[in-house]
Write a protein that binds this DNA or RNA. Structure first.
Lengths: 196, 196
DNA sequence: CATAAAAAATACTAGTTGGTATAAAAAACA
DNA sequence: TGTTTTTTATACCAACTAGTATTTTTTATG
């Protein structure tokens, strides 16, 4: 990787970290260039505006991560019920990057940016739609294979799963204690078993 | 009400509206005093700092509204399952103040402020805890009366209900279309019926 | 009515914000 | 190598931020 491409990636990663922990609008460019040790000239060579960088974070960091770790595994799923549980459980309890007190990066950005910037909303909507669609397909496949009841409405369940995840993430931010995750996951397991 | 008390309330209400639609940190005091037509002198006579005003919004607007419209009705509930559904359905579909694209005020503030200000987090935590506790009690009462299965774990369900609500609110922000609410509510109804 | 206290108005500050203009250095290539 | 292009560095700006100091007006009270 060229040196220039490297500075670009460094900016994206460090900025993402700052934004995840502090919020987008309250993360200043001065702070980003201070922590990355990149000058303002370099920053504005790689990104025309702060918002362009924000979109790049979604497109070049969030989307690929999402694809690799959550979309593709569900697509290959042989056992949707278990895999849904494992996906959410991993995100809540095991993912080494995510922290209880900082919530879900996608949820945070949605919450903060949707009133402000349509490009953000659009990019996030795409990401989430794909996630939802993957879950829907996995449910339908599970129904064909007799693993999930036929009267289950796939979209309803997909929405329920993702909403619950975002919501409990917000709860986690409030309590800063993953005991709420434990209780939530128990309820989530029961909910999933009801789909069988 | 004295004139002074009136300006104070005007500030709180208008500021709350701005914060709900735009976020706390991006709502400036200059903007608040411009829309309220109150001068800076008046503002800082009533509130020592911006954050003090923010806390006052939670304590004097959010909490009382919450108590009156969502806590007390559930406390008096004769039929918890129906009342849970009605509460969430009202919040999502009928409340005249709340809008799809702006999400849930409590959720928004939690998301935005918990990394920044512990007083906010504390005040919001209190509010949410009370809501959760009320739901738990209603479930337990329902169990005693044979309306809800005995093996249901009240806290699990309360957490599930509130998480789902916060999450679908976030979804609504992303889609800016209450059709997601409709689908969600259908799934929510099924979930609740499973508790019987 | 006089006077003290409460409430509101005005003008200002120091610090921060995203972004720009321009120059310097590094890399690519002839 | 010399020269063009890419990348980075530095210094700056106008607009905005929360908050302050001071004065003026309004209200309550004897």
């Amino acid at each position: 990787m060229s040196k220039a491409a490297n500075t670009r990636l460094t900016i994206l990663h460090k900025a993402f970290e700052l934004i995840y922990t502090k919020g987008y609008q309250t993360t200043s460019i001065d702070e980003i260039i201070a922590t990355t040790k990149v000058t303002k000239g370099a920053f504005y060579y790689h990104f025309k505006t702060k918002d362009e960088m924000g979109i790049a974070i979604i497109e070049e960091i969030l989307k690929p991560t999402m694809m690799k770790h959550f979309i593709e595994p569900i697509e290959k799923s042989q056992n949707p019920i278990d895999d849904f549980y494992n996906m959410i459980s991993y995100l809540l309890m095991d993912d080494p990057f995510l922290q209880v007190k900082y919530g879900c990066p996608v949820g945070n950005l949605t919450q903060e940016m949707s009133p402000w910037n349509n490009n953000f909303t659009e990019a996030l909507r795409e990401l989430v739609s794909q996630w939802k669609l993957t879950i829907i397909k996995a449910i339908e496949k599970g129904q064909e294979e007799g693993l999930i009841r036929r009267d289950v409405i796939a979209e309803q369940v997909a929405l329920f799963i993702l909403s619950g995840y975002w919501g409990i993430r917000n709860f986690g931010k409030l309590q800063n204690n993953n005991s709420v995750y434990v209780v939530y996951l128990q309820g989530f397991k029961k909910y999933l078993n009801n789909l069988k």
